[in-house]
Amino acid sequence: MRGTSFLDQFREAVPGAVVGENLTAVDPWVEVVPAKIAEACRWLAKASPVRFDSLQCITAVDWFEPDAKKAAKNTWQPHTELVYHLWSTPAKVSLVLKCELPRWQGDVPGELPELPSVTGVWRGADWHEREVYDLSGVRFTGHPDLRRILCPEDWEGHPLRKDYEQPLDYHGIRGK
């Protein structure tokens, strides 16, 4: 299922979506262009030979090192990585999709990176995307109701970003 043949079909069905893959990792993954994620997911969920009809999880990983000294040693460039874990109920197999986003849209701090929402593919993605938006600061375009879910609505910042600083005060409640 995770072999090259499926990947070829994937490439063919959604042209230009797949930009990289790692089939030898612990969890083999396929990298998808952010702009095509919804299209790719729709194909995977509805039309592909293995129907990935269930979304397990959406995770955002913030690749950023606030400490400049340590950052110099890193081999990677700062970016936000979105990881989609898909599951096929009939075939009982999983698939990992990754998307690389800039940390800030157009490298303007404060402008959240954007990519299309997959709520149209799996309705269960709704809350997962809200959580990613809330905690990691990724804006999902086309999401019906993108609000904070775990933090209060007037919370500032996105706590799971590595450069997040805990506010010293929230409505008179002492932070830190």
Binding site: A25, V26, Q56, C57, V61, H85, V96
Partner: peptide
């Protein structure tokens, strides 16, 4: 270095850790 995701069958459902 790397990443791993695993779901297990917990009483409430499938709990996944990444």
């Amino acid at each position: 270095a790397g990443d791993a995701y695993l779901e297990t069958e917990c009483p409430k459902g499938q709990m996944g850790f990444y």
